[in-house]
């Protein structure tokens, strides 16, 4: 299950996340549209405000506020936050589709001792719909290391069955 890809798409473009470092990433174009845009060197943040739309061939994300925070010296964003009416639609190369809604989605990235740690959460009545079924919880957390071994857990989770065959959802 690659729900985390949706967040990674925001943070890093799809290339690295899509392949988990195994396949060569395809060329990517990422478009971000918004009403306004702010950048501050003092806070190292880029903020997109109002009718934010992030798209690439596999991703459509909308929200009202997207905040990207860079580490000192630049590089990979270490924190992303999307807020207000967050809607994410993602299609894997296999064709599998994911639909996520939440009030807030957060992504964190850090590298320590050559180990890449990524984590994130969906909160505010989050709901993840995927081929295996759907998950709700408050919040829904995820994390993974070096692009592998995705772990997901949710507080007070509910899991729906696949509507096509009634198979109970098994996350991990």
């Amino acid at each position: 299950m690659k729900t985390s890809l949706l967040i990674l798409m925001l943070a890093a473009g799809a290339a690295q996340a899509q392949t988990n470092g195994v396949e060569k990433a395809p060329a990517q174009r990422l478009d971000i549209k918004s009403d306004s845009w702010d950048f501050s060197q003092s806070t190292r943040q880029v903020i997109y405000r109002g009718h934010v739309r992030v798209t690439n061939p596999q991703l459509q994300l909308s929200c009202e506020l997207l905040t990207v925070t860079y580490p000192v010296g630049g590089g990979h964003p270490d924190h992303l936050q999307t807020e207000t009416n967050v809607v994410i639609d993602y299609t894997e190369l296999t064709g599998a589709k994911y639909h996520i809604t939440a009030a807030k989605a957060v992504y964190d990235y850090k590298v320590a001792n050559s180990i890449t740690n990524e984590s994130g959460s969906f909160s505010g009545n989050p709901k993840v719909e995927m081929p295996q079924g759907q998950v709700t919880g408050e919040p829904i957390f995820w994390e993974r290391v070096n692009g592998q071994n995705l772990k997901i857990h949710a507080e007070n989770p509910t899991m729906g069955a696949d509507s096509t065959n009634g198979t109970p959802l098994k996350l991990f």
């Binding site: 290339a15 174009r29 990422l30 702010d38």
Partner: peptide
């Protein structure tokens, strides 16, 4: 320290070559 604001119709495009 610099701050920049674009107030309307913002469009960002990021292109990555294959393998990037």
């Amino acid at each position: 320290l610099l701050s920049i604001s674009i107030s309307n119709n913002v469009h960002t495009v990021i292109q990555k070559p294959a393998g990037s």
